[in-house]
Design a protein around this nucleic acid. Structure first.
Lengths: 276, 276
DNA sequence: CATCATTTGTGCGTATGTATC
DNA sequence: AGATACATACGCACAAATGAT
């Protein structure tokens, strides 16, 4: 026997997914209310809600409080060109991004970061990602800069972080909580300084995906679930291969893609968002 | 006043996420049982389950029926090198991937595809993605090949698809359901044939992320939720920019990253999985 | 502007099933 | 076999957002 019974909510998930993929419910269209669906499938509202939650997690539906459940339209993805020959410091103050259709925005999570402003260099202990990527111990110090950019054309946001090993742009004395530092180099001069002291520089660019958590979904104004992040990392290496700095771009995965090589005319309109 | 009340399950989500990120619960470690947590936070089991479900969706926890809830360890990511100069046909029969540490595997969803075998060229109507990427109408035909590869070293899987516009490798007569076709070119010769007839070829390689759905999570043996896909697409263009074929790689987003440029010695061990 | 119907969100209780050890 | 832990499912009540009246 052993009837291999599938959970009711999974069955309903499959039914609804089928209806969405076959465009029985079309993009942007509202699904019947939860009560109606519960009635239709002869089940309870919690079971329907579970099925819907699953499809939201798969990126196929969005739910709007008080309005209804909708088929999520697929957005066009803009390109982040990676592995380019030029390697600008996107976190340099007054970067040319402003003239390229981006504007700096403040985000909800700014409220939690008292006294820390966008682009203001901040001396801190490395996070575990920082420590791994830069191959340093947790006892060392890094200079952190970050900001949020919003495209003026379509309001899509990205988060930008830069992490530099602190010793390279300043003098760090002591360690742990006793640590003091004087930063000898202006942020605008970081890249040229590092080129002088550790060049010729080499670069590694990677793209991966992850799920956003905490306030990031709100900061980037993403759908709360069902949208992965596209994370682009560019690591600056010294001439002998030691990591010096890295720039991380966090972008909504439904609105951006990374491209290594592009077919000719794609460059034309606002299709290319960033050259990394 | 206006107390801005946050939902209880969100508060608990934040508590638990903090505990995980600060490694109060360490990677691989089990959390207390749902009943214990419910008691600890003076709430009910469904509320605890909702918080846990959220963190599973964020990729921080995994739940094992009958065993417990665990902090998800972070796996190393292997590289998919994109934008390389060589452009092999990964779907060619007996491709050298076998000698490079990959083996072909059958997957659960094979059971649903009656009569269709891996790597067996299949004449079909283009899916909506195919139609968009290849810039053809739904009325045209394409030749589809696909297979699943598993790394012999760490058992990680990827899915590979290739879609060729059917006219380019065979003769299609009629349309719609009346369509018949004779494929004039052997799959092993697709690339050389297209080079001859439409070369010199040009290539575009992109990487994006998306949420997997349907049987794909099982086929790739991914965590059922909380893991995005990394999708790498390589499009073959004719000398005059017309898309001819495209190869799509679907990989678990927690196990792979795409890299455009790599720092020297990364090549050494099994770190580089694929050159696309 | 206020009200009301509709729709989704939150939360608890309860019962039972199934997997693991 | 029994204990423990997670999974499924239903019912209920009330809160909050939305849009129409």
């Amino acid at each position: 026997m052993a009837n291999e019974k599938t959970a009711r909510w999974r069955e309903i998930t499959d039914f609804l997914r089928g209806d969405v993929l076959e465009e029985y419910y079309q993009p942007g269209q509202a699904l019947p209310g939860e009560a109606v669906l519960a009635d239709h499938y002869a089940t309870s509202r919690p079971t329907i809600r579970k099925a819907i939650a699953q499809l939201v997690g798969e990126g196929l539906l969005t739910v709007a409080h008080g309005r209804g459940t909708f088929v999520r339209p697929r957005a066009e993805r803009r390109l982040i060109l990676i592995g380019q020959s030029t390697h600008a410091d996107f976190l340099s103050p007054a970067h040319e991004m402003i003239s390229n259709g981006w504007e700096s925005v403040s985000v909800p999570s700014d409220a939690q970061r008292e006294g820390v402003n966008h682009l203001e260099p901040q001396l801190t202990a490395p996070g575990s990602d920082d420590a791994t990527v830069l191959r340093i111990g947790k006892g060392r110090s890094v200079v952190l800069r970050f900001t949020y950019w919003q495209s003026t054309s379509n309001r899509v946001r990205i988060a930008l972080h830069s992490t530099v090993i602190a010793d390279l742009v300043g003098t760090v004395a002591g360690q742990g909580r006793e640590r003091t530092a004087s930063l000898d180099v202006e942020p605008a001069d970081y890249y040229s300084h590092l080129e002088k002291t550790h060049g010729p520089l080499r670069w590694t660019t990677t793209a991966h995906s992850a799920m956003p958590y905490g306030g990031l979904t709100e900061d980037l104004e993403m759908e709360s679930t069902g949208t992965p992040l596209l994370v682009v990392r560019r690591i600056m290496h010294s001439h002998d291969g030691r990591p010096l700095e890295y720039t991380e771009i966090q972008a909504p995965g439904d609105r951006f893609e990374a491209a290594a090589t592009v077919e000719g005319d794609a460059d034309a309109d606002g299709y290319v968002a960033l050259r990394v």
